[in-house]
């Protein structure tokens, strides 16, 4: 299937899926193109549309096999007008982090990789707004970036079987907060007391693509106090 505009490739992704890859000057712009296409398709809401799963630079379109084939989906992509602004008003969140909390502290390994001291690591992690590129892997897990190159760390060689809820983590030029206990392969910086995911909320996931996040440092006492606060 022929690429067009800032779409570089369109590939089959299973019997009922097409994955569309985008490219722009920067990752933020690429991701905005992904989100814009997602909104455009969602807005036109064709009868065959099952789900739209955005990645960093891709959009997986799942369709109902009884109502469409890949050619139908391709035509819809060609005719989509991905210009509109998001209905979802982007939110800005400030999230507290108890850096180097005992259960989530990979500072030694991170220092070894980057040559940064503990205070430099915290400084780099708290001195810029991060952009939420996409949400996935686990409910409410928001992929944020981009970290400064100097803080870039590879994933663990062997993933951990359990990372605690609230763990703040980094991998490559990404950062995230684990919304619940889960396996994980990222390096850990500390713990965030803010709940990001709750099945009982009307919208169970707090961080959405397009939102921005700034982290700030707190100590153990503040962490404990914030954990006890309702909501």
């Amino acid at each position: 299937m022929e690429a067009f505009g800032n779409i570089t490739r369109i590939e089959p992704a299973g019997i009922d899926g097409l994955i569309v890859y985008f490219e722009h000057d920067t990752l933020s712009q690429t991701n905005q193109a992904v989100q814009a296409m997602k909104r455009a398709l969602k807005h036109s809401n064709p009868v065959w549309l099952n789900a739209l799963i955005p990645g960093y630079d891709s959009l997986l379109v799942l369709f109902n096999l009884q109502h469409a084939d890949v050619h139908t989906v391709y035509q819809a992509l060609r005719h989509a007008k991905p210009t509109g602004q998001s209905q979802h008003k982007s939110e800005h969140y400030t999230l507290p982090v108890w850096y180097q909390a005992a259960s989530a502290d990979d500072f030694d390994a991170i220092s070894q990789h980057t040559g940064l001291t503990a205070s430099q690591i915290i400084e780099h992690h708290t001195s810029q707004d991060f952009h939420v590129f996409t949400v996935g892997f686990a409910p409410g897990f928001a992929y944020m970036g981009e970290l400064p190159e100097v803080l870039s760390c590879p994933r663990l060689t062997t993933p951990r079987t359990r990372v605690p809820k609230g763990a703040v983590a980094i991998a490559d030029r990404q950062t995230a907060v684990y919304p619940s206990d889960s396996p994980g392969g990222w390096h850990l910086l500390g713990l965030c007391p803010t709940a990001l995911f709750d099945l009982t909320w009307q919208q169970p996931v707090k961080l959405q693509p397009g939102d921005t996040v700034r982290f700030y440092a707190i100590d153990e006492q503040q962490y404990k106090a914030l954990c006890n606060e309702p909501g």
Partner: peptide, 9 residues
């Protein structure tokens, strides 16, 4: 970069 995974991938 991380991307959507369909059934049977």
């Amino acid at each position: 970069r991380s991307e959507g995974i369909n059934f049977g991938a």
